[in-house]
């Protein structure tokens, strides 16, 4: 069902959820567990497999590495087991918020096609040039990457192997050529656009089932309720 919610409602719901998570004080550990349970239920309900959740969490590995350092280098390293208590809080803060954020983004990505994401952004009145850039990116990322792959094959077909920094000039020249070709393609696409009456606006129809907004709102509203519970408990 989440696949049929209007893209705009999903984008707003996920963004609101992430904002609520980020604004929650790091000491409210039970509140974060509540968020995780709600998000986990929704993810499983829309059919996102745990394996996919784990794969998406790989994204935050650089932040995890940074966070794990904090208890070692934080101030006053005389706390628990020779680690900095303040550093541990900072690490927890980064880890839990980043994980919930990444999983929320996974929820959006798993239920929304890139095309619909653009339609949603347009429905949310994102500036037209940005919508156009996203639209063309989705359309041409394959075309340009195919071009790059053909170029690499052509290089390798004549014995080129990128093994040392000495091969960097060749790679850089290839990327430069790709840029020029893409730029020229951009000019041709613009000609094709104006030939069909383009006046700066891309028509993207908004799709989605009725009552999308109340359904989508269930995620951030649940988070708000949990936040309110945490706030009451902290008194």
């Amino acid at each position: 069902m989440a696949h049929r919610l209007s893209p705009a409602s999903k984008i707003v719901a996920v963004t609101a959820f992430v904002f609520i998570v980020v604004l929650t004080p790091r000491e409210w550990i039970v509140t974060f567990i509540g968020y995780a349970i709600v998000l986990g239920i929704v993810l499983l309900a829309v059919g996102v497999r745990p394996a996919r959740m784990a794969r998406s969490l790989v994204l935050e590995v650089p932040f995890v590495a940074f966070a794990l350092l904090l208890p070692l280098v934080g101030p006053d390293p005389s706390g628990f087991a020779g680690l900095s208590i303040a550093g541990m809080w900072a690490a927890w803060n980064i880890l839990i918020k980043a994980s919930l954020g990444v999983l929320a983004a996974t929820l959006l990505a798993a239920t929304t096609l890139p095309v619909d994401m653009v339609a949603g952004l347009q429905a949310l009145r994102l500036p037209t040039p940005l919508v156009a850039i996203f639209t063309f990116f989705i359309r041409y990322v394959d075309v340009v990457s195919h071009q790059y792959r053909r170029m690499r094959v052509a290089q390798e077909a004549r014995g080129f192997r990128a093994t040392s920094p000495r091969s960097w000039p060749v790679l850089a020249t290839g990327l430069g050529a790709l840029f020029v070709r893409s730029f020229e393609r951009g000019e041709r696409v613009h000609l094709a656009l104006v030939s069909r009456g383009y006046d700066g606006r891309l028509p993207v129809p908004e799709a989605g089932m009725p009552r999308s907004w109340p359904l989508a709102a269930m995620l951030p509203v649940s988070a708000l309720v949990i936040l309110a519970g945490g706030w009451l408990a902290s008194w």
Binding site: P114, V115, V118, T135, F136, I138, R139, Y140, V143, R185, R188, V189, L191, A192, L193, R196, G197, Y198, D199, L202, P203, V204, P205
Partner: peptide, 19 residues
């Protein structure tokens, strides 16, 4: 690939009439 700039065929064929 220059002519077809929208993400789906339907959106592309509708582009002119909508403009």
């Amino acid at each position: 690939d220059d002519q077809l700039f929208m993400p789906t065929v339907r959106q592309d064929v509708a582009f002119g009439p909508e403009n």
